[in-house]
Amino acid sequence: MKKTAFLGTIAVAGMAAGMGFADTLSDVKARGVLNCGVNTGLVGFAAPDANGNWAGFDIDLCKAIAAAVLGDPSKVKYVPTTGQTRFTALSSGEVDVLARNSTWTFSRDTDLKLDFAGVNYYDGQGFMVPKDLGVTSVKELSGATICIQTGTTTELNLADYFKANGLEYQPVNIDSNAEGEQQYMAGACDAYTTDISGLAATRAAFADPENHVILPEVISKEPLGPAVRHGDNNWGDIVRWTLNALIAAEEYGVTSKNIEELVKSSNNPEIQRLLGVTDNLGAMIGLDKDWAKRAIQASGNYGEIFAANIGEQTPIGLARGLNAQWKEGGLLYAQPFR
């Protein structure tokens, strides 16, 4: 807690310096490279492969922004940031955008002087237990030992939820996801709690995934999204609308495969505006009219990115759930391009 406060103070103290980066767009263009703050490693969201090439759900967002701004999805420098360094890296100007599964919270948005440009993944905290424990609901976990990462919002959520429901628990503090898996497998705790996406990835990697169940309760809201510095609204707009373009593209059925065809033949005015066939929306945010087209071409629309990195065809096998389009019962709702 003290460390968090200390880092928060640094971040706030750095705001004055942060104001020096008023025009991120021209900085990025002059540099020719987008500095994208990413996780040092999170399965499906951001991880380097054997050759050092980054891949993942958050990485594809970086690529889309680079494609929109610089015209080339490969012009990204991935800056790995840890939970401690991520916000200071952003406010000190080391990175232009932070695409690092960070939860959009009140204090981060206001006190830490960040601007969240949207939500690219709706996560929530859940619990995993061994099947032979015979537990079907978190309510039955009273008195259980629970593996929990220290210094995260998940720790606070757990305390809140168990207190609100009058349950007791024994925390087993762990430092990293890998350690948590190890402790859980060794039987040091009855249940393991972290974000549902992380639980799914963890379970997928077990030797016996069928012997473990993820309980139905989701005890917290974790809207994860890209963050930018407070005070540079145009840059924030670019990140927000690039994300919106990916989401809208899925809604309108624009994919990386059919996009060239749609540019020529689509009569749908919404698609025409999005792809810059009729209006020149890009000019309003300091880009050219093909910006959204390039962003979608980088790794596909939101649905394609989801399916390629964390979807049901991948070993992680996440269902769309809350991350489905609003027409399909999810929360994805891109504001209109007009």
Partner: peptide, 27 residues
């Protein structure tokens, strides 16, 4: 130096390796 985002071998590289789905779960 893992805490300042540099890839030292003991933790950072191992975490990066573990976060590839092929090697997730290796400890």
């Amino acid at each position: 130096v893992t805490f300042v985002g540099l890839y030292e071998p003991l933790k950072s590289i191992s975490d990066a390796v573990r976060n590839n789905i092929a090697w997730k779960g290796i400890y």
